[in-house]
Design a protein around this nucleic acid. Structure first.
Lengths: 214, 214
DNA sequence: GAGTGTGAAAACATTCACAGCT
DNA sequence: AGCTGTGAATGTTTTCACACTC
């Protein structure tokens, strides 16, 4: 019988943060306490312990957590060891930034394709990959079993690109275009809207006393 | 006596979303119901009503919300009418993407300066602005009363740029570098880490049944 | 002594369901 | 009839506090 553990969404959102904290800790540190981790991540230490307890019994009472075991478990739980393939659609400044973004390779994602329908960009090289026209998308997805589509096009193309990606069998989409994509069953869509982040900051600019979320 | 209304952080995070929904609604629509708005924003309709009720009594029973009143109130509440000035530090692909990002101007932010310490970039033009060296930052901040600093440098420079911005009197920072910045009293810091977003997606890739947060 | 893992409490957020206005 | 605004119910997240282990 398969064991099913449900991790609360609020916790899932913090797991990548903990992973990042481990990179920022002393290179030669072998163990770390919830107190120390909490300090780096800027959260409560009970929170850290509760979050990590969802992954199993990882720590040792009276001692703390072993850094490398912890890292492995976080990566395992987040599915970062499966080597998911991703494509980026839209190779403007943002798409290029994403293609160059080293963080992805280290973190277990491989960008296997760049797509754009601007003829000036097609066949040019960005971050070691050749930009292809969207008509090649289907082939790529089949060949590399692409799991994740990253949309970095202007807003007006985002929905049709999303439709196309889903049509190619992509089940997870990270959208950077400032539009609301339609929901499709069984497809996970996350949107990052740069201007929304600024707007939230703006709210708290007027109200320096209040504590923001996240 | 000044009226103090405290808007829950979870609601603040949705206000920019509602604003975006209004842009996506029929241009000639004069009124909108919580039900319709909820559908576009993909949230529960009671949620919409509760959220908007924090801004005052904006709707009309039996009728709905007036689109333009609603937009005005949202902008007012988010502080988007104050015309905050922002600077971008780091003019690589990501910084350029941000500089070109039209959303900001429309949404009440003015990018008044671009800064980079790469001599190849200094004095070049990006999105109609001349890239300046970091040594000019203090002057700019005084001259334009800069409220927001956007960090788009590689990780290794992010903390020192943040220190410098804070030193120049900037009280709000939006950080795109994949590092955890130190907290400073009275300074709001929001971080957007592109690879963290992908990692969250990755978790749900393995578990198509679960519902993600946000 | 130091630091985890976790019940129980407290705080926060969402949703229901309906009274009240147009 | 239609739709808001909001008490009350429910669900989720955070935090406290301490028994337990090393």
């Amino acid at each position: 019988m398969k064991e099913i553990k449900k991790i609360p969404p609020a916790t899932v959102k913090r797991l990548p943060l903990y992973l990042q904290c481990l990179d920022q800790v002393d290179q030669d540190a072998i163990g770390i306490s919830s107190k120390k981790l909490a300090e780096i991540a800027k959260v409560n230490d009970a929170q850290v312990r509760r979050d990590l307890s969802y992954l199993g019994t990882l720590g040792t009472r009276g001692v703390g957590y072993d850094v490398s075991t912890l890292r492995n478990q976080l990566q395992l739980e987040l599915g970062l060891v499966e080597g998911w393939s991703a494509v980026i659609v839209g190779v403007g400044n943002l798409g290029s930034a994403l293609a160059h973004y080293g963080g992805f390779k280290d973190k277990g994602f491989g960008v296997v394709g760049l797509f754009d329908d601007d003829s000036k960009k097609i066949n040019s090289q960005v971050a070691g990959l050749v930009v292809k026209p969207l008509s090649d998308l289907q082939d790529y997805c089949n060949k590399f079993n692409v799991a994740i589509g990253i949309i970095a096009t202007p807003g007006e193309f985002a929905q049709s690109v999303a439709d196309e990606l889903i049509n190619c069998g992509v089940r997870s989409i990270l959208n950077f275009a400032p539009v609301l994509l339609k929901n499709v069953k069984d497809v996970q869509i996350r949107s990052v809207d740069l201007s929304q982040e600024l707007q939230i900051l703006s709210y708290y600019l007027d109200r320096p006393i209040l504590k923001a979320v996240d």
